[in-house]
């Protein structure tokens, strides 16, 4: 525990932002299949890191390993605290929120219940936050009493994001938020993410296939292939990389 404090503090100084998340040598497996083979990546506080990767590269598993929802090994330090041995609920209680792939809303619960359960880890009043997210996502406000399962894909994604934000997380994990959504809705959603990051200072870790939008949002990017980080750099570095252009930007 004492070691992790120094790593997360990023003690070298130089005005570098402290790390919200630092992951070292992350391995994960499903049964006999090793999906992650030693990942290192980090998310500085207040910034957005993006992990790009094709289907099956291990993006979802990476996020699930951070929350300890798969069998994994390695070190995960969140806000200076080693969370690699903690259970998922405890990790969420520390201020991490995860929007799973396929949205993961509660289909049998109303929109408002979905948001209230999002604030489960809090003990103070949720009213201000409800107002805030209903203002940001007016379509959810119009459908407060509707069951989440009856919402459209875009609305469900908004609900999933709003639900995650109800816990006032320090770090938001987003698992392919663009998946299955129409292009216009995706643009909307990503401008919301930008707003959340710039104006509310929410730190994010996003995994995506949609490299264009993701790199516009990001301050730092990684490329994941077959369980390895094969490339990392600033969004511009990645955009200019010929391999990335070919594989993810359709150049």
């Amino acid at each position: 525990m004492t070691d992790t404090d120094t790593t997360s503090g990023n003690g070298s100084g130089d005005g570098v932002k402290p790390l919200m998340l630092k992951v070292e040598n992350l391995h994960a497996r499903y049964g006999a299949v090793e999906v992650l083979r030693g990942l290192d990546f980090e998310v500085p506080e207040g910034e957005v890191s993006v992990i790009l990767g094709a289907n099956g590269a291990g993006k979802t598993t990476t996020l699930r390993a951070v929350c300890n929802m798969v069998t994994s090994s390695g070190t995960v330090v969140f806000g200076g605290e080693d969370i690699s041995r903690k259970n998922t609920a405890d990790i969420v209680n520390l201020g991490l929120a995860h929007v799973p792939q396929g949205r993961g809303t509660f289909p049998e619960l109303s929109v408002i219940d979905n948001l209230e359960i999002g604030g489960y880890v809090r003990s103070d009043s949720l009213d201000d936050d409800l107002d805030r997210w209903f203002t940001m996502f007016p379509r959810l406000g119009e459908r407060k009493e509707q069951l989440a399962g009856s919402l459209s894909g875009g609305e469900q994604q908004m609900l999933a994001v709003a639900r995650a934000l109800m816990s006032r997380p320090r770090l938001l994990l987003l698992d392919e938020p663009s998946l299955g959504l129409a292009p216009l809705i995706i643009e909307d959603l990503f401008s919301t993410f930008t707003e959340l990051n710039k104006e509310s200072g929410v730190t994010m870790l996003v995994v995506e296939q949609n490299a264009n939008l993701a790199l516009d949002l990001a301050t730092h990017g990684y490329v994941l292939e077959a369980g390895h980080i094969v490339l990392e750099g600033t969004p511009d570095d990645l955009k200019n990389d010929s391999a990335v252009q070919e594989a993810y930007l359709g150049a």
Binding site: P100, E108, R163
Partner: peptide, 22 residues
């Protein structure tokens, strides 16, 4: 709150865990 958590677990156990429900 316990009832809400119960309904959340009934609806989607994994997501319930992800909002911090034990």
């Amino acid at each position: 709150k316990a009832g809400l958590a119960f309904r959340a677990v009934s609806s989607n156990t994994e997501s319930a865990r992800l909002v911090g429900v034990r």
